[in-house]
Design a protein around this nucleic acid. Sequence first.
DNA 1: TTGCTCCTCACGTCACGTGAGGTGGC
DNA 2: TTGCTCCTCACGTCACGTGAGGTGGC
Lengths: 150, 150
Amino acid sequence: MTSTTTPPTELRIGALAERAGTTPRTIRYYEELGLLPPAAERDSGRHRVYSGADVARLEQILRLKDLLGLTLDELRDVLEAEDARGALREEWRRGDVPAVRRREILTEAARHLDGQLSLVARRREKLGELERELTERRAMISERLAELDT
Amino acid sequence: MTSTTTPPTELRIGALAERAGTTPRTIRYYEELGLLPPAAERDSGRHRVYSGADVARLEQILRLKDLLGLTLDELRDVLEAEDARGALREEWRRGDVPAVRRREILTEAARHLDGQLSLVARRREKLGELERELTERRAMISERLAELDT
DNA sequence: TTGCTCCTCACGTCACGTGAGGTGGC
DNA sequence: TTGCTCCTCACGTCACGTGAGGTGGC
């Protein structure tokens, strides 16, 4: 018990990749493109060091990319808007914000979320269509199988 | 009225691409990989000629690729299975197939469809998760906006 | 003849994969 | 010292995009 094994609140790139379901190379690539901030610290001045917050951010990036089929360029726009929204939240928390400004911040956030939600809705619709067709074909097979049993 | 303008049951690559929502280059690439059959005929011996059935097939390919996120290698497997199923349907139609064989054909088709359906289900679940999170955040914004009005 | 779409190379690009060769802590 | 994970180039790959130069029918 020389070093109290603290729960790994600090991660290196391999651990982050595993938790988020991707590879170190992808993380470096996203950093290169500016999608991920260049790992706040580097332990022993060399290795990138990440936190739990980075896991969440990377997971969210991968979800938007995979589920919505966004290119990294499109993702960059979404994330920039998301970060701007984060900055506004900071402003919000300081408290000394007039009601007019508060309303602006909220409606902007609402627009952003509505944009993402409409993308999700379009995907869900198409997936639903595909599922209905497959299910229908599947039902016909079951029918034929039942006929064989009579 | 020299040539009776028949409804375009015969398409060239540009028209096929437009109908299926893709590009000629993609169609040529899929042909090169063997995902699409090398256009039955070539009019004047040069241009690829397609039919309505090709539109349907290409649309299906693009749907599976985009909605399920399959690589072209994975798609090839799916399509080969689909084509094999088509061959079995031919066998089926000839009629002189014993009941045991009929059952085999049907269960094989059922397995194939179930595989695709489980992929669709997984995607739908993840999309639903994302939608719930976004909707929840959206609801919080609406609440805050309502508070501003009191 | 001029436009239009098609053709075949063939190089470019996006989003990473995959070694090559080297450093740093148990 | 040996393993392990990390590092930075840098070339490879997958799924196309994008001209370059040429042919064929209204």
